[in-house]
């Protein structure tokens, strides 16, 4: 199927496709470094409670900054390349994306009903392709994709819902038959 001419009804067959699972281990030191790198000064994000018996900083009081899901949101979204469907003739088709032509266009974090991210958490992110469409002036069409993700901790508690949107430039996307 030719690139740039993917019919909308074909693109919509990929919508809803579950996009892998990303596992992310939270370390207090990393949470603090991330918060400091964006200029955060509030103590709940950057100041450890004290020192533990082994002399290491005690990060038990530190919570993940509201911008912290940047650490895994994009790599989870990269699973868009896995999206596929099987047509009524039994042929399997894949959304083939050149990640080098991908432009990150939007990001959103939703914390309603979520628990804070803490040192030592093991986080699981599951995503799905929420939308895909081609827009743009003739010759400059982009494939726009939206990926919805949910991240839960190892107790199964929701820590954040993430929405990632990206545009893939012309020549960077096609629908390909999987052998």
């Amino acid at each position: 199927m030719s690139a740039d001419l993917i019919p909308d009804e074909v693109l919509k067959k990929f919508v809803g496709f579950p996009i892998g699972k990303k596992i992310f281990r939270v370390k207090g030191k990393d949470m603090v470094e991330f918060a400091k790198a964006i200029g955060e000064t509030r103590p709940e994000y950057i100041t450890p409670a004290g020192t533990k018996e082994d002399g290491k900083p005690d990060f038990s009081n530190i919570i993940g900054h509201p911008a912290y899901p940047a650490m895994w949101a994009l790599s989870a979204a990269a699973g868009v390349e896995e999206a596929n469907y099987t047509d009524d003739k039994g042929k399997k088709w894949k959304l083939d994306v050149n990640m080098a032509k991908l432009l990150h266009t939007a990001q959103e974090y939703d914390y309603k009903g979520c628990v804070p991210i803490k040192d030592g958490d093991k986080l699981y992110t599951f995503g799905k392709l929420a939308d895909a469409n081609i827009k743009g002036s003739p010759g400059k069409e982009l494939l726009f994709v939206t990926i919805d993700e949910e991240t839960k901790n190892d107790k199964g508690e929701l820590v954040v819902r993430i929405k990632v949107a990206a545009g893939i430039r012309k020549g960077g996307y096609k629908v390909k038959e999987v052998a």
Binding site: E108, Y109, D110, Y111
Partner: peptide, 9 residues
């Protein structure tokens, strides 16, 4: 608390 936030690049 920040309940929800985001935007476009």
């Amino acid at each position: 608390k920040i309940i929800k936030w985001g935007g476009q690049f």
